[in-house]
C-alpha cells in the first residue's frame, strides 16, 4: 500500500502540482490583466531611475528593507538568491547543463551551503513572526508557508548532504543518476521511479520531500508567494 502512496506522490501528484502551478499562475495573471485598470497614475516621486530599471532594482535589491532593517534585508537577499540557486540545482537533477557548469561543481552548486542558508533564512523569517509587532500582523498562512518551506528544504538538504557525505557507497545509497532518471522520465512523460530510489531504505524521505514540494508548487499561485510575480507588477504601478 505504501508503495502505491509513494508512487502517487512521486508521479501523478507531481504532474498535478505542476499543472496547478502553471495553470494557477496563468489564471491569476489573466484575472488581474482582465480586471479594471486604474485610469489615473499611482506614481510616487522622485523617479530616479528609468521605469524598468527602477522596478528591477526595487524588486531584486529590496532597498526599502535595507533602509529599515539590515539584518532582515540580509536574510531576504540570502533567501531569494539561494532559492534561485536551488532552482538551478534542481535543473541539474534533470540532466547536466554546460552553462551551469561554467563554474565546475558537483550537483548542487554550493556543496550544500545553499540548502543550509535557505533553512536558516526560513527559520529567521519564522521566529521573526513570533515576536511583536510581527506576531500581531501575521495570519496562519504566514506560519504555514514558512513551516512548509522549512520541512521541504530540510528534507531536501538532508537528502543532498547525505548523498554527498556517503558518495561512493555507504548507508545513503541514492545516486545522482537515479534522480536524473526519475526527473527526466517525468519530463519525457514516461514516468518511472527507478530502482535506485524505489528500493532505497530512504525512499520515504524522497517521497516526503516530493510531497511537500508538490504542496509548495500548488500553493504558490494561491498564496502570498505569488509576490514572486506580482511584486514586479505592483512596483511598476508605483512608477507609471
Amino acid at each position: 500500500m505504501w508503495s502505491k502512496v509513494f508512487y502517487f506522490t512521486m508521479v501523478p501528484m507531481v504532474y498535478a502540482a505542476v499543472a496547478i502551478f502553471i495553470g494557477g499562475l496563468i489564471f491569476k495573471l489573466a484575472v488581474v490583466l482582465f480586471s479594471k485598470r486604474f485610469k489615473g497614475s499611482l506614481a510616487t516621486y522622485p523617479k530616479r531611475l528609468p521605469r524598468p530599471v527602477g522596478v528591477a532594482v526595487e524588486a531584486l535589491a529590496v532597498p526599502s528593507a535595507f533602509k529599515k532593517d539590515k539584518v532582515f534585508w540580509l536574510f531576504i537577499l540570502a533567501f531569494h538568491i539561494s532559492f534561485f540557486l536551488l532552482f538551478i540545482g534542481h535543473l541539474e537533477l534533470i540532466r547536466e547543463f554546460k552553462w551551469i557548469q561554467l563554474i565546475p561543481h558537483e550537483v548542487f552548486l554550493g556543496a550544500g551551503a545553499v540548502g543550509i542558508v535557505l533553512i536558516i533564512s526560513v527559520l529567521y523569517f519564522l521566529f521573526r513572526r513570533f515576536r511583536s509587532p510581527w506576531r500581531e500582523i501575521s495570519v496562519p498562512e504566514d506560519f504555514f508557508i514558512l513551516i512548509l518551506l522549512f520541512l521541504t528544504m530540510f528534507l531536501g538538504s538532508h537528502l543532498h548532504l547525505s548523498a554527498r557525505f556517503y558518495a561512493g557507497g555507504g548507508a545513503f545509497d541514492i545516486p545522482i543518476e537515479a534522480y536524473r532518471e526519475y526527473l527526466s522520465s517525468l519530463l519525457a512523460l514516461k514516468p518511472v521511479v527507478p530502482d535506485g530510489i524505489a528500493y532505497s531504505p530512504h525512499y520515504v524521505l524522497v517521497a516526503l520531500h516530493i510531497f511537500l514540494a508538490n504542496l509548495v508548487l500548488i500553493l504558490i499561485p494561491f498564496s502570498k508567494v505569488v509576490h514572486m510575480v506580482f511584486a514586479f507588477l505592483s512596483l511598476d504601478l508605483k512608477r507609471k
Binding site: 491569476k28 488581474v32 526599502s64 528593507a65 529599515k68 532593517d69 532582515f72 509587532p133 510581527w134 500582523i137 501575521s138 495570519v139 504566514d142 502570498k224 505569488v226 509576490h227 506580482f230 511584486a231 507588477l233 505592483s234 504601478l237
Partner: peptide, 11 residues
Amino acid sequence: YYTDTCTRCGI
C-alpha cells in the same frame, strides 16, 4: 495586486 502581494513583512 495589493490584496495578493502583501507578505506582511512589516517593513
